[in-house]
Amino acid sequence: MSFTKTVLITGATSGIGESLLHQYARAGYQVIACGRNTLKLDAFKKVYPTLITLAFDVTNPEQISDAATAINTIEAIDILILNAGDCRYIDDAKNFDGKLFNHVINTNLSSLGYLLQYFLPKVPQGGQVVFVSSSATILPFPRSEAYGASKAGVDYLANSIRLDLQPQGIDTTLVHPGFIKTPLTDKNDFNMPFLLSSNEAALRIFNGVKARKNYLHFPKRLTLLLKIFAFLPAAIWQQLIKKRSA
C-alpha cells in the first residue's frame, strides 16, 4: 500500500491522540501510534492493519529508546506529533505536593527531551514537528501550578526549537487547545466553557498542520477571550478567572 506521508503520534490511545490516529489513518497516512495501553493499540491494529504500534511510557527513556530502535526500518517521520500528557491539580497550595508536581513536569515536559532525541533525527527536510500544549498557558488558573508550568515549558521549547529547525527546512507547530472532552477533562469538577469533542480538536489540528501553520489555538471564542483578559490589570483578570473556574 502506498501512503501519503508517515506520522508518529504520542498519547494515541485516548483523547486527542486517539482522534488524531483515526483522522490520519483515514486520510491515507502511515500512522505510528504510541501509547501505554497495549490492548487499545492491538484493537486499533485490527481496524487499520497497516498501523504501526509502539507501546512505551513517555517518562521512561529506556522504553523510548527501545521504541525508536523498533522502527529503524522507517526511513522518515514526516510529521512528529508530541501529544502525550497528563493533567493533575495542586488541591492544597499551602501543603504543596512536590511528588505530583514532579510527575506532571516529567510527563508533559521532560519526556519531550527524550522523544526529540530519539525521533526528531528521522524528521526530514520538509517535515514537521507538532507540540500539543494548552491554552492554560495564556493566563494562570487556580490549582494549575503543575499543569500550567509544564505546558508553559512546552510553549518555550516549541518556539525556541522552531528557530533552530527552520534552517533545516523543518516546520514547528504549537497547538493551544481549549477545553476538550477527553478522559482527563471528564474528571474536572469546574465549568469548561466552549467544550469541544476530541474529534473536533483532531480535525482542527489536522487541517492546521496540513496548512503548515506555526500556531493553532481553538476554540477562538475561548482563546481570544483569554488573550483579552491578559491585557487587563491583574486584579481584574484574576477575579474573572476565579469566577470562571468556580
Rank of each mutant, 00 (worst) to 15 (best):
L163F: 06
E62Q: 14
L54M: 08
I77T: 11
Y147D: 03
H103W: 00
L54I: 06
A67Y: 09
V58I: 15
V130N: 02
S150V: 08
A67C: 08
L116I: 12
D92R: 11
S135Y: 00
T173V: 12
R162E: 13
Y89P: 00
A84S: 15
A68R: 06
L120V: 06
L116A: 06
F56T: 04
Q117V: 00
A76W: 03
P49A: 11
L80W: 14
I52F: 01
L165P: 09
G113A: 07
E75D: 15
A84W: 12
Q125A: 13
N102L: 07
N159W: 08
A146V: 05
K151M: 07
P121Y: 05
I52L: 13
D57I: 03
D57K: 07
P177Y: 12
D78C: 09
A55M: 02
A136L: 01
S65K: 15
A76M: 03
A158W: 09
F119L: 10
T107I: 08
V58N: 04
S110L: 15
V154Q: 03
A146D: 09
L80M: 12
Q63V: 02
A152F: 02
A55Q: 12
D97A: 08
A70V: 05
Q63E: 15
L109P: 09
V130R: 01
D171V: 00
T50H: 14
I161N: 06
L82N: 14
T137D: 03
Q125T: 11
A149L: 05
L115M: 15
V58A: 03
A70R: 13
V175R: 07
G148K: 00
A70K: 14
G169H: 10
P49H: 10
L116P: 07
A93P: 05
D155K: 02
I138F: 01
I77F: 13
F56N: 06
T73W: 06
L51T: 10
L163T: 13
Q63R: 07
S111C: 08
A136W: 00
V129K: 03
F131H: 04
T107H: 05
N60G: 01
Q63M: 13
N106M: 07
V132S: 00
P49S: 12
G169K: 08
Q125L: 00
A67H: 07
N108V: 12
T172N: 03
Y147Q: 05
I64G: 04
E145M: 09
P167G: 11
I161K: 06
A158L: 09
E145C: 01
V132Y: 01
A76Q: 14
D97F: 07
K122P: 04
